[in-house]
Write a protein that binds this DNA or RNA. Structure first.
Length: 834
RNA sequence: GCCGGAGUGGCGGAACAGGCAGACGCGCACGACUCAAAAUCGUGUUCCGUGAGGAGUGUGGGUUCGAUUCCCACCUUCGGCACCA
């Protein structure tokens, strides 16, 4: 019988259908086995599965399969993050309803996802734009509202004029502050919107106890939150010439945040942000024109202009004064755009002697500079002549009873001078220890249609109230007009917003903004637990068994957005008793990006997009899977190489040939069989380790090496022996997570083993078989390789040393000299020093 | 400026306790098979040198018998943050 040719087009759909029919990848609660919840970030249903999706999902799938073979009860679900701007923008252009388009795309992408041969349990699929899902997104909003974590605030927000919607801080990218989605520079708008109080959890979000997340992500999140320790100090406005008041009495309080309270005695002026609410009040008539002009100019400038670091300092004097609470000094108040309303309190105490910015400002405008610490032992510096702000360690001066206190470079209370000052401020009641964050509350509102409705109702009499929970979901109306107006189409709908107040029953209006889609993706891992559940967002039984997520995989680009939101969400729910544990995802791993062959990011406009469907058509899914795992370090990514896939294709076909060639066994020597078993078990050991460590490229290269060994062994007549049978079995089991279809075909049909390969146990290493009998030991003279000696594995160091000294290459290089020292590294190397 | 990755052949990469640098694959060269090509198989492939040999993991130093691996300083590059008080 002629061997059957390798035909992925036949075997891949065949097994996919059988696995599906048998429910092979269904994951159900099974208390007798340890659980493993493997999660890969869900796609947005843009229409086509991209090679990047394959790159992200294939190794995740392979590892989930490996864990299953290791004996875990594995859940590996898949779904769609289906709300969002692109569908709505497409609707504005084409008139096709986003729901229609999204559902069509999902049908196509499901089919493409199935072609990967991944072990997704499709019974657990969730789609975030379906009312069965967003009912619970709304429910969560209400829970957060009831817990006091949702609030409404009028605030300047970043607004994308092209997408016609507000953006969260993290959706604004780049130096030119452009929209994450469309690249248009954002503008500022004042809108009243919903926020979640994520900052309440800032400190906890900085802790990563008990979770195995990459250093890189932890750093990004830590920098994003940017905790800074210091103190809040209350200054007061001083009596102005127009309204004289006794010093220390009256005046408006001015709260400032400072990381250097120990420099308070050197605060010689204050600077307000031009938008600070007290500016108008303190400005004196003679300064009014200049102040107004400066405010107008600052307002006109974009954030990028204002934010330029090397920009020359600008500012104007308001005519107003403040009282420094530590020494009652009367100090002038200026406004300058280097003070931002969005950080701290929008006002600073300026200490020019010890802050570079304040120093530059003081020199430019001739303001007083008083040094309050100096290098130990140095003469007192003179504020009038010093050339730069002094920021190293030293001792305090010019600071009343603090003089002599040591100042180091530590932050917060670790610095003795700061600790001493904070204690004193608190005792005197003029300030207190405080922590400030760059992190902001989460802006939820989007002036858009295609998102989950915000289930809130406004009544003239009773204000804002949540929709009663038994009336959820608030569904999106289907008959809306697509107009890019900057308002939600829900606002323009003639009747949808009209409702009655849940408190008084009188006429009221619904919130017409919808939710940020990050809200949907903050809890999708919970919906996978029981998407069939209609009485709660998830079934507790499923939660208790499966959660937390054991391995979460996805792109690094979500580090400060999705991953931070989902952690906040989990912690907030925990505090309401809805979830348990401190973190939703125990282990996180990030994959890199597949670039185009031109080394650029893949995009339609560049024409460098690689279509996975074509590759599957040409090579089969197994080859594409193997290549994606092989061609780069997973966490790094690499540019696509269309020639390289030939290597993976060759490996798959050579594997097929090895198993299907009609080759009779010979009379192998015992050494051949011993060698074969050794190679097999050594590779098994390494590949097992690589699966544990997410090192997918070496898993495939290891399989390639083993295949080469199998060919050699067959050449030496090993076919048909027991060792050969074992080698074949272990080889197929090891390739099963990587190339599930061909592995199944070889296991079930070619070898005739019991279906299915994917329910087999991962093989165990026979350490005895893996051991080397003989070892080749490199011998160096002065660190340079000169010869090798072959020794029995159990040879003593003495024997190895003796043999090494006699080796031909060594003798030649010793040239009769006596070795000073001979280093024998156990079973690995000899170095002779002369 | 601050924080964090990464620098190894023509290319992707390997080296997992500090111990043979370049596994595996792509590409390339030569050979076998073929009328020929493709496919397949085989051999070779870090650089310099005919050779013995020498050099070599971004650069410069250090520790060590021995450093891609550890330490110090720097360069390049990618990503994040940035007048953050």
């Amino acid at each position: 019988m002629a061997p059957k040719a390798y035909n992925p087009k036949e075997i891949e759909p065949k097994w996919q259908e059988k696995w599906e029919a048998d429910g092979l990848y269904h994951s159900d609660i099974d208390e007798s086995r340890p659980k493993h919840y493997a999660l890969t970030m869900l796609p947005y249903p843009s229409g086509d599965l991209h090679i990047g999706h394959w790159y992200a999902m294939t190794p995740s799938d392979a590892r989930a399969r490996y864990m299953r073979m290791k004996g875990y009860n594995v859940m590996f679900p898949m779904g769609f993050d289906a709300f969002g701007l692109p569908a709505e923008n497409a609707a504005i252009k084409s008139g096709i309803h986003p729901m229609v388009r999204t559902r069509d795309n999902i049908v196509r992408m499901r089919k493409q996802l199935r072609s990967m041969g991944a072990m997704f349990d499709w019974r657990r699929e969730m789609v975030s734009c379906e009312p069965e899902y967003y009912k619970w997104t709304e429910w969560f909003f209400i829970q957060l509202y009831k817990k006091g974590l949702a609030y409404r605030k009028l605030s300047p927000v970043d607004f994308c004029p092209k997408c016609n919607t507000t953006l969260a801080r993290e959706q604004v990218w780049g130096d030119d502050r452009h929209c994450e989605r469309c690249g248009t520079p954002v503008i500022k708008k004042d809108l009243s919107q919903w926020f979640f109080q994520a900052t309440k959890y800032a400190d906890e979000l900085l802790r990563f106890d008990g979770i195995d997340w990459p250093e890189r992500v932890r750093t990004l999140q830590t920098n994003w939150i940017d905790r800074s320790e210091g103190a809040s100090v209350i200054f007061h406005t001083a009596p102005s010439p127009l309204a004289p008041l006794p010093v220390g009495e009256g005046g408006d309080p001015i709260e400032v945040f400072t990381t250097r309270p120990d420099t308070l005695f050197g605060a010689t002026f204050m600077v307000f942000s031009p938008e600070h609410p007290l500016v108008d009040k303190i400005t004196t008539p003679e300064n009014k024109d200049a102040v107004e002009a400066y405010k107008a100019q600052a307002a006109r400038q974009s954030d990028i202009q204002r934010g330029a670091v090397d920009k020359e300092k600008t500012g104007v004097f308001t005519g107003g004064y403040a009282i420094n609470p530590v020494n009652n000094a009367k100090i002038p108040i200026w406004i300058a755009d280097y003070v931002l309303m969005s950080y701290g309190t929008g006002a600073i105490m300026a200490v020019p002697a010890h802050d570079e910015r304040d120093f530059a400002f003081a020199r430019k405008f001739g303001l007083e500079i008083i040094p309050v610490f100096k290098a130990e032992g140095a003469p007192d510096p003179d504020g009038a002549t010093m050339e730069a702000a002094f920021i190293s360690e030293g001792v305090m001066i010019n600071s009343a009873h603090f003089n002599g206190t040591k100042v180091n470079v530590e932050k917060g209370r670790k610095n003795p001078s700061i600790a001493a000052m904070i204690d004193w401020l608190e005792e005197k009641g003029i300030g207190k220890e405080m922590v400030n964050y760059r992190y902001r509350d989460w802006l939820i509102s989007r002036q858009r249609y295609w998102g989950s409705p915000i289930p809130m109702i406004y009544c003239e009499k009773d204000g804002w109230n949540p929709v009663p929970e038994d009336q959820l979901p608030v569904t999106l109306p289907e008959d809306v007009e697509w107009k890019p107006t900057g308002e939600s189409p829900l606002k323009l709908h003639p009747t949808w917003k009209n409702t009655s107040c849940p408190v008084c029953g009188g006429p009221a209006e619904r919130e017409t903004d919808t939710m940020d889609t990050f809200m949907c993706s903050s809890w999708y891992h919970l919906r996978y637990l029981s998407p069939w559940c209609d009485t709660a967002p998830f079934d507790d039984k499923e939660y208790n068994y499966w959660m937390p997520v054991d391995v979460y995989t996805g792109g690094i680009e979500h580090a400060t957005m999705h991953l931070l939101y989902t952690r906040f969400f989990h912690k907030a729910l925990r505090d309401m008793g809805i979830t348990e544990g401190n973190e939703p995802m125990t282990q996180l791993r990030n994959q890199g990006m597949v670039l185009g062959e031109d080394n650029e990011k893949m995009s339609k406009s560049r024409g460098n997009v690689v279509a996975p469907d074509e590759l599957v058509e040409k090579y089969g899914a197994d080859t594409v899977r193997a290549y994606l795992m092989f061609f780069a370090r997973w966490e790094m990514g690499a540019p696509w190489d269309s020639k390289g896939i030939e290597g993976s294709s060759r490996w798959v076909r050579r594997t097929w040939a090895l198993f299907t060639d009609d080759v009779k066994g010979g009379t192998p020597t015992p050494e051949t069989l011993r060698d074969l078993r050794r190679k097999v078990h050594q590779k098994l050991k390494r590949i097992t380790r690589d699966f544990e460590n997410f090192e997918f490229n070496t898993i495939v290269s290891g399989l390639m090496e083993l295949l080469n060994e199998l060919y050699k062994a067959r050449e030496a007549g090993a076919a048909g022996s027991a060792a050969w049978q074992e080698a074949q079995e272990i080889y197929v089991k090891m390739m099963a997570p990587v190339t599930p279809h061909i592995a199944e075909e070889l296991w079930t049909d070619v070898l005739g083993k019991k279906y299915s390969i994917h329910t087999q146990q991962w093989p165990t290493v026979d350490e005895e078989a893996a051991k080397e009998d003989e070892i080749t030991i490199p011998v160096q003279v002065n660190g340079k390789l000169r010869d090798r000696v072959v020794m029995p594995a159990e040879a003593s160091d003495e024997d190895i040393k003796a043999a090494a000294l006699k080796a031909e290459g060594v003798v030649k290089h010793l040239e009769g000299q006596t070795p000073k020292k001979v280093i024998v590294v156990k079973k690995s190397l000899v170095n002779i020093v002369v």
